[in-house]
């Protein structure tokens, strides 16, 4: 999937095109975090910063924050349109949970939103496979 390296993708989660996983909580909110694929590309997270506040209404793919890691930096974007309910405050003090437990304690934020465009694990696998060529070009183009 990522060349010869496999990344773990739990089957019970669903996935957004920006390489975030989505878990619907009992309260009907959607909790998002980075997939193992995203974490593998970024490697050790140094710093995470949000540019929007809890309660903000987000457009799909609106810039919401920024992340810096040992290998990369990136803006972060809203995976779906909706209302941001809360951020994982623990990560702002210490973002290492993203690397240690990306599907658990490393969650990023919760939103109230329709879940349009969210993929099943199979669809996400296909999405990754189909984009691996382009992803490699992106990575190499910058190195």
């Amino acid at each position: 999937m990522m060349g010869k390296f496999a990344a773990v993708l739990p089957g019970e989660l669903r996935y957004a095109k920006n390489h975030m996983w989505c878990r619907t909580t009992d309260a009907g909110r959607h909790r998002f975090g980075f997939t193992a694929y995203a974490v593998r590309l970024m490697q050790d997270v140094y710093f995470l910063d949000w540019q929007v506040n809890a309660g903000d209404v987000l457009q799909h793919r609106q810039t919401i924050g920024h992340i810096e890691t040992s290998k990369a930096q990136s803006d972060l974007f809203a995976p779906v349109p909706g209302t941001l309910i809360e951020f994982n405050e623990e990560l702002l003090k210490d973002p290492t949970a993203i690397n240690i437990d990306n599907y658990g304690a490393g969650w990023l934020f919760e939103m109230e939103a329709a879940d349009a465009g969210i993929m099943t694990v199979d669809e996400y696998y296909q999405f990754l496979d189909g984009n691996w060529e382009n992803t490699q070009r992106l990575l190499k183009g910058h190195m």
Binding site: K17, N18, H19, M42, Q73, S74, D75, L138, H142
Partner: peptide, 16 residues
């Protein structure tokens, strides 16, 4: 002088 910077994954995380 763009090389030597960290990779910018914004395009990847932003979708298309």
């Amino acid at each position: 002088n763009i090389s030597g910077l960290k990779i910018d994954l914004s395009r990847l995380f932003g979708g298309d």
